[in-house]
């Protein structure tokens, strides 16, 4: 059961930031992780600051290739349904579609999924390969950081006391193909055994691949651009990227999968990803 907690719905971002200064205060947007954690007793905040009413967080823009901004109020089904986004950056919708269920995606937000900082977070790999940054507001004003700096460990982020992620900014979208793939235990909703996202720009010869659920944080493979430049053969590229993936990850044994299976599936899924985005 959820323990008694105070609730406050601020009218402005400033008010939200002020409320978040309280000991044990937590922002709540979709709440689909937080409320479950509170019900299970793994999180016991004293104050919930409901940021769903804040206009500053209700931003979304995806204009041409020049970049995408997604505010903290934007839920995952929006990312699936938005036609413009599907056109210019389909990997977001693909990732979102693999998260939980339709009902939960009507509440769950992109930023919530990132702030929860699960190693298996399905939205994170796409953010890594797109080079997304988070915009944070707090008592000391605004700061920005790369997603890879923001997620620091299992369920840990760089958010300081009283801080709040307002939006995600994705820089210019490269030309080329992108995709998200996920290994799970059944076809219905499940947490990822392994998830991978990738984006390949054949003109600029850039290739970004990120693997989730195989280390304490998602792993953005290093040296993939070089691999991409070194070979035009997709099968060879797939094999070499998979080998790189195997060396770069540090999966564990848990109730969902053995480390061995995760490692092998990371390799298989990286290959499949390469074939999808590099052919």
């Amino acid at each position: 059961m959820i323990k008694p907690v105070a609730y406050f719905k601020p009218d402005s971002l400033a008010e939200a930031v002020e409320a978040l200064q309280n000991e044990n205060a937590r922002p709540i947007a979709g709440g689909t992780d937080l409320i479950i954690n509170m019900r299970n007793g793994t999180e016991n905040p004293g104050l919930l600051v409901d940021v769903k009413g804040l206009d500053e967080l209700d931003v979304f823009s995806a204009n041409g290739k020049s970049g995408i901004t997604i505010g903290a109020r934007v839920n995952l089904n929006f990312l699936i349904d938005d036609a413009k986004l599907r056109n210019i950056c389909p990997v977001l919708g693909e990732s979102a579609l693999s998260v939980a269920t339709y009902q939960l995606r009507n509440r769950a937000t992109l930023i919530g999924n990132l702030c929860n900082a699960s190693p298996a977070a399905d939205m994170a790999p796409a953010m890594y390969v797109l080079g997304a940054g988070v915009v944070i507001t707090g008592p000391h004003g605004e700061r920005k950081m790369l997603i890879s700096d923001f997620i620091t460990g299992v369920k840990r982020t760089a958010l300081g006391k009283g801080e709040l992620v307002v939006k995600v900014e994705i820089p210019e979208i490269p030309d080329g193909k992108m995709a998200f793939l996920k290994k799970q235990r059944c076809r219905g909703h499940d947490l990822a055994t392994v998830n991978v996202a990738g984006i390949a720009d054949p003109a600029a010869k850039t290739l970004k691949i990120c693997i989730g659920a195989c280390a304490v944080t998602p792993v953005l493979l290093k040296g993939t651009d070089e691999l991409y430049r070194e070979t035009d053969n997709v099968d060879e590229l797939a094999d070499r990227a998979a080998e790189l993936a195997r060396k770069s990850i540090a999966p564990i044994d848990d109730v969902r999968s053995s480390a061995e299976y995760r490692r092998d599936m990371a390799s298989v899924y990286v290959k499949r990803l390469i074939r999808k985005i590099c052919s």
Binding site: Y7, K9, N77, N106
Partner: peptide, 20 residues
């Protein structure tokens, strides 16, 4: 599952306070 402002949601993962 109930429909909240036109969208189906799981009412166990939402607080009553949030739906004012």
């Amino acid at each position: 599952t109930i429909v909240l402002n036109g969208k189906p949601v799981t009412s166990c993962t939402i607080l009553a306070a949030e739906v004012d």
